[in-house]
Simulated assay, not measured.
Amino acid sequence: MKASVSLYLFLSLCGLSSALLRKHFYVNEKLFWQDAQKYCREHHDDLSTASSQEAQQLTINQNFSDRFWVGLNTLNSTEWIWSGGEKEAFDYWNAGEPNTNYELCTAILKSNSKLINVVCNRNYSFYCMERFGLILVQDSKTWEEALDYCRQNYIDLVSIDSSRIMAEAINNTMTSQTANVWIGLRFLAGHWFWVNGGNVEYKAWSGGELQCPSKNLQCAALDKDNNVWKPEDCEKRLNFFCLKEYKKPEIF
């Protein structure tokens, strides 16, 4: 059984107008680490790379086992690397770990979201990841035009549903040619919603909670000077964030 986790975290890339986004998928099938890696590379991108914050979210979003594989491993018990090639920190080892020179693969404990090193031929469930790109489009369009542009040329306008995503999005507004940047948040039928269908649980409105905006201010933009969302006139012409597909590198 495979379950998608509604978890998106951004990683800064070279350049100030793009970032990489990870989405994680829990696979409730118990395999050796290498077989789990093979499965993930065939069906997704790779075994999951997970920051400490992601590790906490991954444990919250599954209830099937007390530990599960992620993509951190080593060949010599000294240099640990992520299967997907990311440089993400792995500074959240469980107490006393890593502790032997023959336990070359890693799992996360559900009890405390910490890494443990174990022998690779254990049968654990695992998380796979898929990667997408965040791109700032430096072309001024109305909200609807931005939505159409993103869907025609990429995937969608970007949804921001955590403080870390918000921080990374702010970092990528530095080259924006407009003070505010469209995001995929719209007010219709009495409530705000993300264009990807997600509920608005994380909020970063200017002035706190925002329930019913003025009739002409029913699209949301990221204010790069004040680091908040603000309702804007949907006909205003702004730069915008698109979500683009990540091109998976070939694995030999």
Rank of each mutant, 00 (worst) to 15 (best):
N216F: 01
C242A: 15
I160N: 04
N239L: 10
E232S: 08
L222F: 03
N227W: 07
I170F: 05
N199Y: 10
I183H: 06
R164K: 06
D233F: 01
A221V: 00
I165M: 10
T175D: 13
W194V: 12
K224I: 09
V200I: 09
F240Y: 10
G190S: 05
Q177P: 03
L217W: 01
F193H: 12
L210K: 08
V228D: 09
A204F: 04
Q211R: 11
D156G: 10
A220M: 03
A204K: 04
E201K: 13
A220N: 03
N199E: 14
P231S: 05
I183N: 05
V158T: 13
N199F: 10
R186W: 13
T178M: 03
N180S: 12
R164W: 05
E201H: 11
G207T: 02
S159D: 15
E232W: 06
D223E: 12
N226Q: 11
M166E: 12
L222H: 02
A221C: 01
S159T: 14
C234N: 02
C234Y: 01
W205D: 06
E201S: 13
G208C: 04
N227C: 09
S176W: 04
S162E: 11
N227I: 07
N180W: 02
Q211W: 07
D233L: 01
P213W: 01
I160C: 08
L238I: 05
G190V: 02
W192T: 04
E201I: 15
C242H: 13
D233M: 00
A189K: 10
H191P: 03
C234F: 01
R237C: 06
A221Q: 00
G184F: 04
S214E: 05
W182D: 13
W192Q: 02
D161A: 13
K203E: 15
E209K: 12
R186G: 06
N196C: 13
N180F: 05
K224H: 07
V228H: 10
K230S: 13
F241A: 02
G208T: 03
N199Q: 11
L157T: 04
G197Q: 04
A169D: 02
N199V: 11
N196L: 13
W194K: 08
P213I: 00
N196I: 14
L217P: 03
C242D: 15
T178W: 00
S206G: 07
